[in-house]
Structure formats: structure tokens, C-alpha cells
Amino acid sequence: MIEFNDILQAHARIKSIVKHTEVVHSKLLNKWMGHEIFFKVECMQTTGAFKLRGASNFLAKLAEQESLPKHIVANSSGNHAQAVAFAAKQFNIPVTIYATSNISSIKAAATKHYGAELKLFDTRLQADSAVQEAASEKDVVWIPPFNHPDIIAGQGTACLEALQSIDNINAVFAPCGGGGLLSGTYVCAKHFDPQIKVIGAEPLAANDAAQSLRNGRIISLQQTPKTLADGAATPSVGHHTYEILQQLDGFYEVNETDIAYWTQWLHHLLKMHIEPTCAMTMQAVAEWLNDQVSPQRVMVIISGGNISATSMQNVWAHDHLTKLPSLGQTHLNNLSNK
């Protein structure tokens, strides 16, 4: 398991490559919900997502060790692809990305823009198999999307910056695909204060992590899931991330209607382009807050903002803005009586 010091070292390594993104809030949302909710907006990161942190740390550490490869390969549904392509460009190393043919068009275009070659496959399992074969060649290094200590440490720097910016946080929420961001968030938050709750969210339609946590072993999805939260459509978590995920304080599975609902509302309230993958985390926040008996201060890691036109059309297929975010009057009355 990684330690907090690994995250500190990662932050020092990558500060010249990644942006120190803002923490924002919505006064209106806080009024409606009866709690203080803060958002670490990694949608404003250079490549539009937190993934740049892990990829940059992976390569910067190799550079420190004078062991940079001649070629880099990676497998990704999009955000990791862009991150690896951008990070590798900083070190002048050519990149080949292996992905599925349903990759978001905007993520594919950005990946190519950063100079990477993009190879597409029908399924995630085929792409994963191809990248493993390519990684076996001489002087080639595979940068995994989540299942590596240096990736986890890099992703944890988002939480580090967030908790350095805002005091007295009671809980931190993050989405879960492969678990790199959520694992790094857990290690970081628990160092700041062991009492901070760390809670994850995952699409119900792609709930391999939830199944794994319930069954006490890693379970892989047998088919590519259909979900608005494409960034969390990984077949399974990894053994590095799973070890940490088992210690979480809570984990929620979110249906597609709620994913669309919170994507629309966060776009409206924060005036930012936010991916369904991280917007769904607000449903976990709402369900958790509904069980609290005192006012809470929570941090939500907004993991990215790269959305294709097709995804946007699906998100806005039905108007959810007619229903205001709320925990209900009974809950608010209970809070006011404390």
C-alpha cells in the first residue's frame, strides 16, 4: 500500500506539469441541501481530467531514476489516454494508445492532438490484451490506468490540494472506475484526519467494484457496460487499488437516471463542463447526507470534463432541472433542531 509521503513526493514531482485546480462551491446547492459541499474541479485540469496527475508522476519518477523508455503504451477509454499522451510529450517519448472503438470522439481527438498513435478494438478486454503484448517488447513501458502505486500516488495529489485549501472536511467523495483516484484519495484524506470519511460511487450498470467489495474478491465484468459514466466502465479494479478500496467508509451504486440528473444540475449550478462519471458522485453525497444528524462539510473530487456531443445528447434526453436538489424538509428540520 502506498503511504502519504508517496503522495507528497508525487506532488513535488508533477507541479511543473499539472495545474493546481480550484475548489469551488454553490451557495444555492448548499442552501437546498442544508450542508456545505465543496468541489475540487479537475475538469479544469490541462487535459480535462485528474488522470494527468498519475501519468505525470509515473514518468517523472522514471526520469528521476534515469530509466525513461524509448516507447510508451497505455490502454484507456479516453482520459488516461490523453494524460499519457500529454505527459509523454513533455519527455519527448512516442506513445501508442490502445482503446475500444466506442471511445469518446472528443477524447480520441485530443489524444491524437497530443501526438499519440491510437489503436482501436471492439472490446476493452481485446485492448487490454493488445497492450500487454506490446508492453513485452524491448524498451517499451506500459503506463497502466490505475493499478500501480505511482499512478495511485499521483491521483492522490488532487485530494492533497483540496484538503490543503479547505479545513474541517467531514467526508471526501470520489468516483470509482479502476479505483486509482479513490484509492489515492483514501490514503491522503486519512493522513489529514483519520475521522474523515472516504466514500466512493460507481454506476450500477458497471458495478464491478461494488460486487468485488461485497464478495471479498475482485470480480470482473464479462461484457462492456452501457453507462453514461464511460470513465467508470472498467472491467475490474486492480489488486493494488482493491487492497485500499476494502477500507472505504462507504460505497454507492448509482443508476443512470441519477447520473443524468446530477450531470445536468452540476452543469447548471457550477457553470462548468462536468463528466457524468464524476457528476454521479453527487448521488452518493445526497444519500450519505440524508443519514447525517448534524451539518456536514464534504469535498467532492470532480474528476473530469471531457464529454462528447453524443454523451451530452444522452444526458439531456430528459429534462431533470424541473426537480430541485433537496434532502427533504424532514431532514432539514432535524438539522435545524440540533
Results as ranks from 00 to 15, higher is better:
P94C: 13
P94G: 11
V95Y: 03
I97W: 02
Y98Q: 09
A99P: 03
T100I: 08
S101Q: 15
S101E: 15
N102P: 04
S104W: 05
S104V: 06
S105I: 14
S105H: 13
I106G: 00
I106K: 12
I106M: 11
K107G: 07
A109K: 14
A110P: 00
A110Q: 14
A110D: 12
K112N: 07
K112Q: 13
H113E: 12
H113W: 07
Y114L: 12
Y114T: 10
E117R: 13
L118Q: 08
L120G: 11
L120W: 02
F121L: 03
R124G: 00
L125H: 01
A127F: 00
A130C: 13
A130G: 09
V131P: 06
Q132S: 15
E133A: 14
A134M: 14
E137G: 11
V141A: 14
W142L: 15
P144F: 02
P144R: 03
P145R: 07
P145Y: 04
H148W: 05
P149A: 11
D150Y: 12
D150C: 09
I151R: 04
I151N: 07
I152S: 05
I152Y: 04
A153E: 08
G156Q: 05
G156T: 08
E161K: 08
E161M: 12
L163H: 01
L163A: 07
Q164K: 15
S165Q: 15
S165C: 15
I166G: 13
D167C: 06
N168K: 14
N168H: 15
I169K: 01
N170H: 14
V172R: 03
F173K: 02
F173Q: 05
A174F: 04
P175G: 05
G177S: 10
G178C: 04
G178Q: 04
G179D: 05
G180R: 02
L181P: 06
S183V: 07
G184Q: 07
Y186G: 00
Y186D: 05
V187G: 09
C188I: 05
K190C: 09
H191A: 13
D193A: 12
D193I: 03
P194N: 09
K197S: 14
K197N: 11
V198E: 04
V198I: 07
G200C: 09
A201Y: 00
P203A: 12
P203R: 09
L204D: 14
A205M: 07
A206L: 08
A206Y: 01
A206T: 02
N207W: 01
N207G: 10
D208L: 11
D208R: 07
A209V: 15
A209E: 11
S212H: 05
S212V: 00
S212Q: 06
R214G: 07
R214F: 09
G216C: 03
G216F: 07
G216L: 05
S220C: 00
L221R: 06
L221E: 03
Q222K: 14
Q223G: 00
Q223N: 11
P225R: 10
K226I: 00
K226D: 10
T227L: 13
L228M: 02
G231M: 02
G231N: 05
A233G: 07
T234A: 14
